[in-house]
Design a protein around this nucleic acid. Structure first.
Lengths: 124, 124
DNA sequence: CTATATATATCGCTCATCGGCATATGGCGT
DNA sequence: ACGCCATATGCCGATGAGCGATATATATAG
């Protein structure tokens, strides 16, 4: 009995930033792969430059999960172009993710602003 | 020449949720490992139950990166206890992470609330 | 002719996280 | 006495999202 049979996926890991930005980029309008890379860079103020390896495997995964769907396939100027759209499930997932993150960020802010009794030179 | 020599860490990946919650849990007071697990569960409303494997390797990594430091080592009721504190660099990193996430969440909200011309049955 | 932009796709590798296990003490129930 | 749970730390193999690189192809600019 191989280990791979014992170890099976139980938890859905929390979404990472590239995926979050990908869903965000699709939230207002359908887009094709290449334009998503640019849109994600724009949203993140140039911080996140998603590689094609990340992008296309993420698109496959999200299609599989039903969070996005293929809107249409075209040929523009001799180049194939596949346009993706956010599915209802993806919209719900993104909204839930935003809520979760909002809560965590609020908690981080709250804790960061607490007066710490161990702070050096404080309580003067 | 093995592949492992070609492939070397270039980018710092964006922080994942367990790590974010770990830093958040340390933001208001120093805590020891086991209590961090409970604090993280509390912060995330029971959603994130960090495994000890995740926790202690994360603590090692964050120590290495200088984001946290060992506050003290004690023996309480015969049990070893190591208490960690958020370092200045960790405090700055957490604040920056919160800012980034706030921006992404705001953008997601903005896009989720846009009226989409392709929406079915809309514009009545 | 050669970059650069547009566009999609695949492959090997890394690392944070996961699940499980090991170890040890103290307290509580039976 | 024995098991179970909470407390507490730590290691190890497996998983999978993301990364870097590469391949392929067309159009446009220099």
């Amino acid at each position: 009995m191989p280990m791979s049979d014992i170890y099976s996926r139980m938890t859905e890991r929390s979404m990472q930033e590239p995926t979050l930005l990908l869903l965000t980029a699709l939230a207002d309008a359908p887009r094709h792969g290449y334009s998503l890379i640019q849109e994600i860079a724009k949203i993140s103020d140039g911080r996140v430059k998603v590689r094609t390896g990340t992008l296309y495997s993420a698109l496959d995964r999200l299609l599989q999960q039903g969070l996005i769907r293929i809107e249409r396939d075209e040929v523009i100027d001799g180049r194939a172009r596949r346009t993706y759209a956010l599915a209802d499930a993806g919209r719900a997932t993104l909204a839930a993710e935003a809520d979760r993150l909002r809560a965590v960020v609020a908690e981080a802010d709250r804790r960061l602003s607490t007066i710490r009794p161990t702070a050096r030179g404080a309580l003067a």
